[in-house]
């Protein structure tokens, strides 16, 4: 049986892993390669790296990080932040990433998703959506690190993303990000019900129960989290034991 995935997320700034809250108050956490190795050994199913500076001068530092991570771990990882062109995608995959995550650039140029899926295959094109509630059961897509409202409906954009050829969707709930009060189950479920590609829920993880809820009630295929793992508030083996006891299929022998 296909297992639900636990996905630690590493925000990388100038070659270091950092952690912020609601995209602000950024703090230094660790070396990305050391942390990737640690999560790999703990049984993480996949990793996500976001280049949160993504300025041109830091691009090569980040690609070095990607290559060093690929050399050390034998689990899949995706890379996002600052990916705007087919050349960016090609360089990132060649550096050893398995997937690229496209966010703002896809809003500005939806054709990028289509071109990337045709050239590299849907399996490596992840559409990352930052969504925020504007009224009950209505969410809109934000870009530029959550600062700009595009006024595009998040669910409609997810459907469009699948049609364009994205192989997976990461849904980041801005309202709950960093609050540790649980994932946004309504948003995750609303998107999971409308698309036939895997959904990764992101934002709000605080307890093991939150993971179980989003993987069951939220309909997510994978759950992403950062600080609960970075600060060892939740250990991945404990989390997986808890999920297995809640009748969720997870990979436990690595």
């Amino acid at each position: 049986m296909l297992a639900k995935r636990i996905v630690p997320c590493l925000d990388v700034d100038k070659g270091r892993v950092v952690k912020g809250r609601k995209f602000q108050n950024i703090q230094d956490v660790d070396d990305p390669v050391d942390l990737a190795k640690k999560y790999n050994q703990a049984g993480a199913d996949e990793l996500v790296f976001y280049d949160i500076t993504a300025s041109n001068e830091n691009r090569n530092i980040f690609l070095d990080v990607v290559e060093n991570v690929a050399a050390e771990i034998a689990i899949p990882f995706s890379v996002g932040g600052g990916i705007r062109t087919i050349t960016d995608i090609h360089q990132t995959l060649r550096a050893g990433a398995d997937k690229v995550s496209i966010n703002s650039a896809a809003i500005k140029n939806p054709q990028l998703i289509k071109d990337a899926a045709l050239k590299f295959g849907s399996q490596c094109v992840v559409l990352s959506i930052d969504a925020k509630a504007v009224s009950e059961n209505t969410w809109q897509v934000y870009i530029n690190g959550g600062r700009t409202n595009t006024e595009i409906d998040a669910i409609g954009w997810a459907i469009k993303g699948e049609q364009l050829g994205a192989g997976e969707i990461v849904i980041n709930a801005i309202d709950v990000d960093g609050e540790k009060n649980g994932y946004n189950l309504e948003l995750t479920r609303a998107i999971a019900d409308k698309v036939n590609i895997p959904i990764i829920a992101s934002g709000g993880a605080g307890t093991k129960e939150h993971f179980a809820n989003v993987l069951q009630k939220g309909g997510a295929d994978a759950a992403l989290a950062a600080s609960v793992f970075h600060y060892s508030e939740i250990q991945i083996p404990d989390l997986k034991e808890y999920l297995a006891a809640s009748n969720i299929i997870v990979r436990r022998e690595i």
């Binding site: 297992a3 199913d45 399996q123």
Partner: peptide, 26 residues
């Protein structure tokens, strides 16, 4: 189409024959 496509993630192997390729693979 009855399942999500792509088939993405960790899935289990069911062995169909004895084969040296599966040595030490449970």
């Amino acid at each position: 189409e009855s399942v999500k496509v792509p088939h993405m993630g960790w899935n289990t192997l069911s062995h169909r024959q004895k084969n040296p390729l599966l040595s030490n693979i449970k």
